[in-house]
Each structure stands twice: as structure tokens, then as C-alpha cells.
Amino acid sequence: MSDEPSEPIASLKKVKHIILILSGKGGVGKSSVTTQTALTLCNVGYRVGVLDIDLTGPSLPRMFGLEEQSIFQSTEGWIPVPVETNGAGSLSVISLGFLLNDRSNSVVWRGPKKTAMIKQFMVDVQWGELDYLLIDTPPGTSDEHISIAEQLRWSNPDGAIIVTTPQNVAVADVKKEINFCRKVNFNIIGVVENMSGFICPHCSDCTNIFSSGGGKELAKAYEIPYLGNIPIDPMFVEMIENQSSNQITLVEAYKKLSISSNFQQIIQKVLDKKLEPRC
């Protein structure tokens, strides 16, 4: 197709690593995993950018407490919305959510418009120098996914983190996503199993609400790395929902949660791979 770039994307020239967060299934926690990956990397001191290409259901503005914000336009292009990190790395976000006037407005777009929007995100956003760009995606293997694959064709992304929940119904959809990655030549960095068990706050017993082990089996069957599992932690949802009243930054608040240590191990596995920087 003629609209595809024929060279690496200029706006991503100074981005060292590009990681996509994918899952065939909806509601497994792609945006949660994206948020936690960003916060964890910030804690290490990296400069992180987050791009939300879920156009009809953007969750990241709420995740980062940026719902009222909007994107500024400079002469060079769009400036990502910064998140206050109090010196721990840096964090900025781009999402279609910032371009909507009202949070309840629906974006009822067919494919070609979504494709054009993603292209615009690629061309117009001035990310500047970043260590990591995380791309959060909608569920499925359709317009958004084909478009981002086409756009990144020459830009050499590091690969994808695949998110699943443990039950078969979710794993079945995630298998389709893995096959998609193989077809478009996205390297798979590994699988994260989210919502794996819930620890009862009353008796500390762990219940596997969505069964368990699906992610590990999936990784084994497809011979891809298993990065680890994250239990359901209502404290995380609470932190997201109450962040406006918090006195500390999201990065600091997250550090205090018990799941942040789980997540740190997952990110450590990614860092240990020493993926070749793009620049």
C-alpha cells in the first residue's frame, strides 16, 4: 500500500526502545500492564513515553490521572502530556482521550479513520529523547493492529509483551494474537499472566477466580518466554481511582504497593534481555 512509510519514523528517531502491549482479549489488563510497566521503568530512572492506540476505549488518561488534560500543539507537532514524577525518570502520554471534548463522547469510527489517526500519532507527536516508548493497543487483530504494524515496519520495534488472564477463553484469543505477531514479524518479548489469583483481605487465602496457569502453559506451547504473573490487587485499582487526592506522585504511590515488587521482577526479566537500543 502506498500510504505505508518506506523508512523509519522520524518522530521516533531518538527513542531507544519501542515495546507494544498486546492481547487478543479485552479486559485482561493491557492498560494496567502498560501503566505498571511505565511506572516501574520510571522508578528505575528511565524516560518513558506511552502511546494509547485504543481509539474507541482509551483508558490511559484515567490510569495516569490526566483526564482533564489536553495535548498542546507546537510548531514541530503534538507535545505529549507529562505526568509529574518528582525526578524519577520522566513520563509522558498520548491518547485520543485527550482530544475529546467530553469524556462520555463516543468515537464511532470505521477502519480508515482509525488508520489515519494512528498515522498522525506516528508522524506528528514530538516524543523527543526517550528510553522506552510503550504502545498500548485495543483488543483484537484488526485495523489498529495492522496499521501500527505497517507504520513500524522500518522502525525496528523491540517487540511485544503479551498479556493474558489464566482462563482458556482468554488464552484462546491470545493465541490468535501470537499468530498475528508471528505474521507481522513482531518479536515476542514474553507473556504476562494478569489477574492470576485474588488474595482475600480477610483471611489471606488465595482464590483463583479466573483459574490459574494458563499463561505459563501458553508460553510453553508456543515456546515464548514467560515473564511472570500478577495477582488481582484491589489496592492498585484504588490507587488509580484515588490518585487526585494523593499527596505523592503516582510513581511513588505505586512503589508502596505490594504488587510493584511482582512487577519489578517481570520488568527485570525484560531488562535482562539487554535488547539492542534502536539508537
Partner: peptide, 18 residues
């Protein structure tokens, strides 16, 4: 809402903050 099968205690996993 979720009722723990061990202690029958109820918790809100996806808390309805709004």
C-alpha cells in the same frame, strides 16, 4: 463483589469508587 470460599468474607475486587 466476591465471596471468599474459605472465610465467606466479601470483598470488592473491582471497587465501584463512583
Amino acid at each position: 463483589g466476591f465471596v471468599c470460599p474459605s472465610c465467606k468474607g466479601e470483598s470488592q475486587i473491582f471497587r465501584p469508587t463512583t
